[in-house]
Amino acid sequence: MTQLIVNSPSASHVKPLIQAALDHEIRLLQMGIEKTKRRLRHFEELFKIETLNFYQAFQAGDMGDEVECMKWAGEYETLLQFEEDFAQIRGIQVC
């Protein structure tokens, strides 16, 4: 867990603002994760393959360079980044 220590004469006012900003960012990331997962399901239905299997083949150069494959890979990479950011921010404790 990451601790964010607020050292200020107005810490009692600043801490809730920081926590509210973190909570807002968490909500935005959750929405982004859900939206990205919906997009990935669309690609999975379209190509009849799970995203992880697709991405492994894509990384190996076995999926070609179609625009749709590029979009799919980009969506998956976006999901990975959102999930990483979510985990990091969710682990912050404001002290």
Score class of each variant (00 low, 15 high):
49 I>K: 06
44 E>W: 11
45 E>K: 13
44 E>N: 15
94 V>H: 05
61 G>S: 11
39 R>P: 06
53 N>V: 15
9 P>R: 11
14 V>R: 09
42 H>V: 11
81 Q>G: 04
92 I>C: 07
74 G>F: 04
45 E>P: 08
41 R>F: 12
84 E>Y: 10
79 L>I: 12
53 N>S: 15
45 E>A: 14
14 V>H: 12
12 S>F: 06
34 E>Q: 03
4 L>K: 10
33 I>A: 00
78 T>V: 03
80 L>E: 15
65 D>V: 09
70 M>G: 06
31 M>Y: 00
93 Q>E: 08
23 D>Y: 00
58 F>N: 10
47 F>G: 01
53 N>P: 12
94 V>C: 04
72 W>R: 01
61 G>K: 07
26 I>G: 04
60 A>Y: 13
70 M>R: 06
17 L>I: 12
63 M>A: 09
50 E>C: 15
36 T>K: 05
61 G>C: 07
57 A>E: 12
34 E>F: 00
66 E>T: 03
10 S>T: 11
90 R>F: 00
78 T>E: 04
46 L>D: 12
76 Y>T: 04
48 K>L: 11
38 R>C: 10
84 E>K: 09
30 Q>K: 02
7 N>L: 14
4 L>W: 08
37 K>N: 11
53 N>M: 15
43 F>T: 13
32 G>H: 02
68 E>T: 07
85 D>H: 05
42 H>G: 12
94 V>Q: 02
33 I>N: 01
83 E>N: 05
33 I>M: 03
91 G>W: 00
50 E>T: 15
25 E>P: 03
69 C>T: 09
56 Q>K: 15
40 L>F: 13
88 Q>K: 12
2 T>W: 06
16 P>I: 08
87 A>V: 04
32 G>I: 00
62 D>F: 04
36 T>S: 09
67 V>M: 02
68 E>S: 10
46 L>C: 08
70 M>D: 06
6 V>S: 01
13 H>F: 07
10 S>Y: 13
68 E>W: 13
8 S>P: 10
52 L>Q: 15
7 N>C: 10
5 I>P: 03
14 V>E: 10
76 Y>C: 05
65 D>H: 03
52 L>C: 15
51 T>G: 14
45 E>F: 07
31 M>P: 00
81 Q>F: 02
42 H>T: 13
14 V>W: 08
7 N>S: 12
92 I>N: 03
25 E>W: 02
37 K>F: 06
37 K>E: 12
55 Y>D: 15
73 A>M: 05
73 A>D: 05
90 R>L: 01
59 Q>W: 11
85 D>E: 10
24 H>C: 04
92 I>M: 08
67 V>E: 11
82 F>Y: 10
13 H>Q: 13
21 A>M: 08
13 H>I: 11
85 D>K: 05
52 L>H: 14
44 E>I: 13
21 A>G: 05
25 E>R: 07
15 K>R: 14
36 T>D: 06
54 F>K: 04
54 F>L: 14
60 A>L: 14
87 A>N: 08
30 Q>A: 04
50 E>N: 15
1 M>L: 14
85 D>C: 07
73 A>G: 09
11 A>C: 14
57 A>F: 02
86 F>W: 09
